[in-house]
């Protein structure tokens, strides 16, 4: 029993990693006022590019870098539509998701089902990994796990304790006032969308080269959407995103635990999405003022209009 619990928690950390990466990126993006519903598509693009580069070159970290680049590149579409053209961000984000899912399926066709021979070793943190229970759960994990937590903390520091962070948050709250203070709102929003895209692609890369070590069309399986919900659940705070993401990682894993109990596996597979719905429902009961949502989230900014 003990072993089952430890391995479940360990797998929850693994399952939570891509959620944390994507959520962190979406938090930064939404803090600048841009709603990016393209996470799912960018994640798929990240997954497929990371897989292809890794399997052809044998360099997983090169794969990760190329994936981040690809994620940023494809996110430019959303940035251009929503910032420069001031289009509806929901439509443009949905388009990005469809584009990313379709494009990744097409590019990845020849690679479906190919096993990835290169293994990324888990990092065992000296001394800390010897702690009973916790050592195995938290300190014997893939590098992506540590990277995700590190980046979430960096993102928090960046948003709360740097000048650029204040500027990005101000942009999401009141772009006009921000611009009168001499800040280039357009540039900051582009930057935030690109950072968000990079994070989503990184999450995808983790899925294909570390989590499942294979590529199959649609392997992101709605994780991008969950990340968008987690952004709200984390109240746009990367620090809160950490535990929110791993909580959901746990829900992903708990279905394997419950299968022996005779519950239909189809129902169990539904759990993470059901939990997302429940959480969105619960959070909408809260006083919207206390949610701390960026005031101008999703609103295109037009210069010089009253």
């Amino acid at each position: 029993m003990e072993d089952i619990i430890i391995s479940t928690l360990q797998r929850a950390m693994v399952a939570g990693t891509p959620l944390l990466l994507a959520t962190t990126g979406e938090v930064i993006c939404e803090r600048s006022g841009i709603l990016n519903l393209g996470v799912e598509g960018v994640m798929a693009m990240g997954a497929v590019t990371a897989f292809i580069v890794t399997i052809t070159t044998g360099q997983p970290w090169l794969g990760v870098l190329v994936a981040i680049g690809a994620g940023m590149a494809i996110s430019i579409i959303h940035a251009f539509a929503s910032i420069t053209l001031q289009a509806n961000q929901v439509v443009s984000g949905l388009a990005l998701t469809m584009l990313g899912l379709g494009l990744s399926g097409m590019i990845g066709k020849p690679y479906v089902g190919k096993p990835l021979s290169i293994k990324m070793d888990d990092w065992t943190i000296p001394y800390l990994s010897d702690i009973p229970y916790l050592g195995k759960i938290l300190f014997t994990q893939s590098p992506f796990f540590y990277l995700a937590i590190f980046l979430a903390l960096v993102a928090w520091f960046f948003l709360e304790r740097t000048r650029l962070g204040i500027q990005i948050r101000s942009t999401g709250e009141n772009p006009r006032a921000t611009e009168t203070q001499g800040v280039n709102v357009f540039r900051l929003r582009y930057l935030s969308v690109l950072i968000g895209g990079g994070f989503s692609a990184l999450a995808g890369a983790h899925l294909s080269i570390s989590y499942s070590k294979s590529w199959i069309e649609g392997m992101t399986a709605g994780r991008g959407w969950i990340a968008i919900a987690l952004t709200i659940f984390a109240l746009w705070n990367p620090g809160r995103a950490i535990w929110a993401a791993f909580l959901f990682g746990g829900i992903f894993v708990v279905q394997y635990l419950m299968q022996p109990l005779g519950i239909s596996p189809n129902f169990l597979a539904m759990l993470p999405y059901l939990a997302t719905l429940i959480i969105l429902f619960l959070i909408s009961l809260k006083d919207p003022r206390k949610l701390n949502a960026p005031a101008m989230l999703g609103e295109p900014y037009k210069r010089g209009e009253r």
Binding site: R163, R169, Q181, N292
Partner: peptide, 22 residues
Amino acid sequence: MLIQNHSVIENIALGYKDTPFF
């Protein structure tokens, strides 16, 4: 031209030209 959800200090930091990065 103030950011309602931000603190006074953050609003001033936004507009001040010599705000340090960190």
